[in-house]
Design a binder for these strands. Structure first.
Lengths: 297, 297
DNA sequence: TAAGGTTACGGCGATCGTAACGATC
DNA sequence: GATCGTTACGATCGCCGTAACCTTA
């Protein structure tokens, strides 16, 4: 057994058990990969993969158990490199952030700017995707840190930190009827609604609040992205339910925003990362920066 | 980086950072070990060990952090082999039990006998030592399972199962004054006491019970071993405070045993093993056998 | 016939062993 | 001088790449 065989097993999972593509990823020829897999299975004493003819189609029960240890080894190996990099120069490195549009545009700019000043040598990569995919990014080592509002609580393999809490607001054109008077579930339900796609940015809180009220919202457009929502609000399609902090006083002067904290429960944005993933010092400082910025909300 | 380098780091810790002995343990020459260590440190980019001249004297701070990942890798590697062995033949293998004399002699015989019938191919190694050392045995992979009454609760790296509860008794020659009447703290304290050494078999419970009562016991002999205690009781040195189950009706007919459950709190014997240690199926069955036998108490 | 996998074989490099040397007690 | 570690060098074994072959959609 050796580390490249372990690595191979990990890569095979990523390539849907395709030996050729695994070979490509590892920068060696396919025959070498085939041979190494045979050697490993030989050493283990029974097959790791179910085969259909020659093709690998699934993990055997044994394979599944072994794969658990394999990922542990790969993780530890990455950690060793990360730890070592810390000691060489803690001011150089990369940080991969997976987050949603809302966080990337309205929350992250300040802390990232401050972080950049402290660690000018650290490259920041930001991936935007849906909350579901964010978790996936963590598990496939494509992201170090995820920042989002939904979904991260379910996963036992993650460390989750509460970042900040916020509430939804409604945005509308200045001359809209909702600009005046108290806003109730009933009044809100009279108008076409634009809000986040399912699974995004506190959408689940909107759902549950209105489910309780017994009223049904007329959601005519769902978007992953506050800016898209605002664009259509400007076109008069309806009123937008967005995160309060996504209203920008400078840019959105033509829109009116009204608080909905009495209707929709608080949403909590969290920071998440893999439990066994060693975070370099600068990443830990980045998280501190996030928590600091969170105090403004 | 490769697995033998990782293994080397682990072995180096076991040999107090002695390269020559590490080489011996790994069945290669010392120069090879030296070279591999250099290569690893080179790859990491800074030294793992503090050196005094050429001698390794300690881990650097970096080294300490890396060592944490190293043991994770070694553990995972062992687990892979253990998992594989399970699938090859779950009826063959070895099981290393670390326990104290009392358990080995009075509790384990029945479950081990039953286990042997189910798994005649499994070699059982039993190591006897003090509770403190038992934990050490687990951490150095010299034992798979530890069974004892003391000390195992403190260690976060261990899984601990409650096995059975028991109470202390007093044994004495048949004609002893304590044979008659109620036994109180005060009466017990009148006689010279023989009991377990500190740190063994519920001794801590004896201590705490008498500390509370305000009386001081005259412990004239401490032994790790019930049989030693009984031997000296027979010689008339005093009365023995022993675990109730260590009285054997057949052999100890010349001795009288009286229950002390009203004086000394219950002791709990536990089963412990390393959290990240994969236990083969037969080991899991062995534990079940222990828990089954525990129901008789 | 294209895509995925295996087998055979030659070449190269990593790692080991031998051996001589250096340091420290 | 005994113990411990490093350096140099030749030998060996493991692993990769080339290439031919097998199988299935």
């Amino acid at each position: 057994m050796n580390l490249s065989q372990i690595e191979l097993l990990r890569v095979l999972q990523e390539t849907q058990l395709n030996l050729s593509r695994a070979a490509e990823k590892m920068n060696i020829v396919q025959s070498a990969v085939s041979r190494q897999l045979q050697l490993f299975e030989e050493e283990v004493g029974s097959p790791i993969f179910e085969r259909n003819g020659k093709k690998l189609v699934a993990l055997t029960p044994l394979g599944k158990q072994i794969m658990g240890e394999v990922v542990a080894i790969c993780q530890a190996k990455l950690n060793i490199h990360a730890i070592a990099a810390d000691y060489l120069d803690s001011n150089k490195g990369t940080i991969h952030i997976a987050t949603t549009h809302t966080q990337a545009k309205y929350f992250l700019p300040k802390p990232i700017q401050r972080f950049r000043k402290k660690y000018p040598g650290v490259r920041i990569y930001m991936v935007q995707s849906s909350p579901e995919q964010l978790i996936q990014q963590l598990h496939t080592y494509k992201a170090d840190i995820a920042i989002c509002t939904e979904k991260v609580n379910d996963d036992a393999g993650l460390i989750t930190l509460q970042c900040y809490q916020w509430h939804h607001s409604v945005v509308m054109p200045k001359d809209h009827p909702l600009a005046e008077g108290d806003i109730s579930y009933a009044r809100l339900a009279e108008y076409p609604i634009l809000t986040y796609s399912f699974g995004y940015t506190g959408r689940s809180n909107i759902e549950s609040a209105f489910a309780k009220s017994g009223l049904e919202l007329d959601i005519i457009l769902s978007a992953a992205d506050t800016d898209v929502i605002k664009t259509y609000v400007r076109l008069g399609l309806g009123v937008g339910l967005i995160a309060g902090m996504a209203y920008d006083e400078r840019i959105d002067q033509d829109l009116l925003i009204r608080d909905l904290s009495h209707l929709i429960p608080l949403s909590t944005t969290k920071i998440a990362y893999l439990k066994q993933h060693y975070l370099p010092l600068y990443s830990q400082h980045f998280i501190e920066e996030l928590l600091l910025a969170a105090q403004d909300y």
